[in-house]
Structure formats: structure tokens, C-alpha cells
Simulated scan of single mutants.
Amino acid sequence: MVLNVHERRLAAPAARAGALIDSLAGQDDRLWPHDRWPAMRFDRPLQVGAEGGHGPVRYRVEHYRPGTRVRFRFRAPAGFDGYHEYEVRPLGDGGCVLRHSLVMSTRPPAWLTWPLVFRPLHDALLEDSLDKAELSLGAGPRPPRRWSVRVRLLRSLASAVSR
């Protein structure tokens, strides 16, 4: 079983962070780091039943509670059985936590592709997403995160293969 969680404490009300979730794959997407990664796209606006994904990762919107949570059920790549989701949880101090969770079991070929290829890319993408959330909520500009050598190598290889 794979449980991969990325979260960021934000100095903003949960409703403002929830609006970032609602903007996913829209014209004014303020959460997905589409400036550095393949854009998240769907066959219709964000809603239950919308199908799409980013790059080679495909999924279907399984659950959506505006301003609070969206869950995506994997359809590809092969061997990914589970979901990923964004959710916002309010904190007592007026801030909130924005969390992304990936929960899945793997079967071949994902036994190899998840740890060797997808996990390092996923981890870098999610940290970029949470950085974008902070920036969108007024935390101030910060330089783009420097990816690890492994992530830069995998992105170069993926770029060469897609040509």
C-alpha cells in the first residue's frame, strides 16, 4: 500500500484555500503548477464524472465538495489502483492546512514505475503545487524550488521520449 501525503499550513482562511481547489484545471488555475509541469485538463469543468489528467496520469473526478475537497480515481498508468485528492482543513487560529494525499496499491508494472519514476516526479510536482498555493494566497514570491538531480534527469528523459 502506498500512502504519500504532502501538506502545507497556510496563513489564510480555509475558504480562500478552498477556492484554490475550485480553480483546478480552469482558466485561472491557482493551485496546479502548470507553468512547470503538464497542465491538469478535464473533458468538462471540475465536477464529479469529469475525466482527464496530466501528462501520462489519467483519472476521473470521484468526489467533489466545492471549497473543501476533490478526489480523483486513477485510470492510468497501468498498475495504479487508488486515488489522489486535495483537501482543506481549517485550523483554530484562522489558518488552514492544504493537504494532498495519494492512496493506492500497486501491481505490475507500477511495482517498479512508482518508486523509480513516478514518485520522485510526483513529490516535486506536489511541492511546486503547495508553493503555488502559498503564492496565490499572498505569502510573497519565492524563487522556484530547485528539483533534485534525479527529477531533472527524469524530466529530461521524458522530454526526449515525447519528441
Rank of each mutant, 00 (worst) to 15 (best):
V97A: 03
H34G: 15
R41Y: 09
L135D: 10
E85R: 04
G18V: 06
D123H: 14
M104Q: 08
R36D: 08
W37F: 13
Y64R: 04
W111I: 06
L154R: 00
R65I: 06
G79R: 03
R16T: 13
G92V: 10
P77I: 05
F80E: 02
P90C: 06
A139N: 08
A158Q: 03
D128G: 02
S23L: 12
V5L: 09
G52L: 05
A39Y: 06
V161A: 02
P77Y: 03
L91C: 05
A76G: 10
E51Y: 04
A50L: 15
V149E: 06
N4P: 02
G26M: 14
A12G: 01
C96T: 04
V88Y: 05
H34E: 15
F42R: 03
R41T: 15
L135G: 09
L126W: 12
P13L: 10
R75M: 10
V61C: 05
T113G: 07
P141M: 08
P66C: 02
S136A: 15
D81W: 14
G95F: 07
G138R: 03
Y86F: 14
S136C: 10
S129L: 15
L137K: 08
A19M: 14
W147V: 08
D28W: 07
R65L: 07
L154I: 07
R58A: 08
L98S: 07
L153F: 12
V48M: 00
E62L: 11
T68M: 05
A39E: 13
L121M: 14
D93T: 04
R44M: 14
T68K: 11
E85D: 05
V70R: 03
P38T: 00
V61T: 05
G82M: 01
D123T: 14
L98W: 10
D131L: 10
L91D: 09
S129Q: 14
W147D: 13
V48Y: 04
S148P: 03
D22I: 12
A76Q: 15
T106V: 14
P33H: 00
R107P: 03
L130R: 13
R8W: 01
L121E: 08
L46M: 08
A50K: 09
A39W: 08
A78P: 07
F80R: 05
R155W: 01
E87Y: 07
R99A: 15
W111P: 02
V48R: 08
P33A: 02
M1R: 01
E7H: 02
W32C: 12
T106A: 13
W37L: 09
H6M: 01
L10N: 01
R155K: 05
L98D: 09
R71H: 00
G67W: 00
P66S: 00
N4W: 01
C96A: 05
A17H: 03
E134I: 07
L135N: 10
F118V: 15
L91T: 06
R60H: 03
H54E: 04
L20P: 08
S159P: 04
A39V: 11
F74L: 11
L3E: 11
L130Y: 13
S162Y: 00
F42V: 09
G53K: 03
S101E: 10
L3T: 12
Y59E: 07
E85Q: 09
M1Y: 00
R41A: 15
S129E: 12
R145I: 09
Q47L: 15
Y83K: 01
G52K: 03
